[in-house]
């Protein structure tokens, strides 16, 4: 299991992802600086959360022009698995590797708390297969721009294709996202963008261990 963690100036969940993957896979992931242009042979590329380039201009917009993005695109076109969490999700929508966009939380505030996300019935994907649809995972969020938006036609397509990976519970949507969407898959199911932080519910001192389940399942699926 070879995992790359892409680090941009302003990434701040890189170490957290590193610790989570190390703990679960018993293998050391590799940090990839955003200026590197040659990343090959990884089973999974993770784009961690943070405030890349200060989130100036637009969240993820500047990072999506970093040199490393070309290699990430190449990895995607080979059908490689990519996980973008929080700011990583924003970068994936900015690069158009995932549809839609993430705008300011409807309450216009940064929000950080635990909540439940519900695993959806999706197209085949290493990120969701292995979970029974409607499984609840308790995972914290921490974001200011997590309000996922796509227009009506695209939303229909997402639903039809089974690209919605996670939803917030009805009435507990923290950011106003369309259809309570918390995570979205690419058309081939190999790329996931999600706002909640599974790396923050992995260790016994965390409030929940559901993030551990998420990573365990992902690693099993990728290795099988």
């Amino acid at each position: 299991m070879r995992v790359a963690i892409v680090v941009f100036p302003g990434s701040n969940c890189d170490r957290d992802i590193f610790e989570a993957i190390k703990f679960i896979s018993k293998k050391l992931p590799k940090f990839i600086w955003h200026k590197e242009t040659n990343i090959e042979n990884f089973d999974l590329i993770v784009i961690p959360g943070g405030f890349t380039f200060g989130d100036y201009l637009r969240c993820g917009a500047l990072a999506s022009n970093s040199p490393v993005i070309k290699s990430i695109r190449d990895h995607a076109s080979r059908g490689g698995a990519i996980l973008g969490i929080c700011n990583g999700f924003q970068i994936l929508t900015e690069t158009k590797l995932l549809p839609g966009t993430l705008i300011k939380n409807s309450v216009l505030k940064f929000l950080c708390h635990d909540l439940n996300v519900i695993v959806q019935n999706t197209l085949p994907s290493p990120f969701t297969w292995g979970f029974k649809p409607n499984t609840k995972l308790n995972i914290p969020i921490a974001h200011n721009e997590g309000n996922y938006y796509v227009n009506g036609n695209e939303l229909k397509k997402l639903i039809f294709n089974g690209q919605i990976a996670f939803k917030y519970e009805e009435n507990f949507n923290p950011n106003g996202s369309v259809e309570n969407i918390a995570g979205v898959l690419s058309e081939n199911g190999r790329i996931l963008g999600m706002m909640p932080h599974p790396e923050r519910s992995v260790f016994s001192h965390h409030n929940s261990l559901d993030g551990r389940l998420f990573f365990q399942n992902l690693i099993e699926q990728l290795l099988s």
Partner: peptide, 25 residues
């Protein structure tokens, strides 16, 4: 306090709502 990121770095144990003191591992 929900407007602050209290769980980044992955070591937070209590943010003063579960115990009288705030605790990080």
């Amino acid at each position: 306090y929900e407007q602050y990121d209290s769980s980044v770095m992955g070591d937070t144990i209590s943010i003063g709502n579960k115990s009288d003191a705030s605790i990080v591992k």
